[in-house]
């Protein structure tokens, strides 16, 4: 029971880390520019993730590594490029005057809509799924929530 609670806490903290990541990257973008902010974040992230890989290797934890079918298509190796762009765009959006919670909610709408679109077409090698009317209720729900967050702020 305690172990399970720890996983819940860790996942919640993971979300907190993401919000903090966007906030501090945006702060860096204000001092420099969005591209430099993404570059700094990726540079530091690369060093830290390398350390984590070393720790993983030293502890012999090989969860999720499929050694039998190690075939990585070239296009998959370029996954870091859209990631770099998301950091640039996120810092531009947060620094535009939209506050952090609004920015995150709106990006979530885009994620969900594009996710449904990707599944309908089977993009990026993911499994195709038949999309029904209920799927459109989801972005509507999230967009309604985002609208309430945007327009529900107190006037001070």
């Amino acid at each position: 029971m305690i172990g399970r609670s720890m996983d819940w806490i860790l996942a919640f903290m993971g979300g907190a880390l993401l919000a903090l990541m966007i906030q501090y990257n945006s702060q860096m973008a204000q001092s420099t520019n969005p591209i430099m902010a993404s570059w700094t974040a990726h540079g530091l992230g690369m060093v830290l993730s390398f350390l984590f890989v070393l720790i993983q290797m030293s502890m012999n934890i090989e969860k999720g590594i499929n050694k039998k079918n190690f075939k990585l298509p070239l296009w998959l190796c370029l996954g870091g490029i859209p990631g770099a762009c998301t950091v640039i765009l996120a810092s531009m959006i947060v620094n535009s005057g939209l506050n952090l919670s609004v920015s995150i909610a709106l990006m979530l709408v885009g994620q969900v809509v594009f996710g449904i679109f990707s599944e309908a077409l089977g993009l990026f090698g993911i499994r195709k799924r038949r999309i029904g009317p209920a799927d459109f209720f989801v972005p509507l729900c999230i967009l309604s929530g985002a609208t309430l967050i945007i327009f529900g702020r107190s006037e001070t």
Binding site: E62, I65, M107, V109, Q111, L123, F124
Partner: peptide, 29 residues
Amino acid sequence: AFFNGAVISSSRTLNGQMSSQIGPLHASF
């Protein structure tokens, strides 16, 4: 912001595909 959500979604899908091959920490690096 909507557009960036789409970019995040694609990035996440690509990262997920790579993670399933080489593990999440290697993919992150």
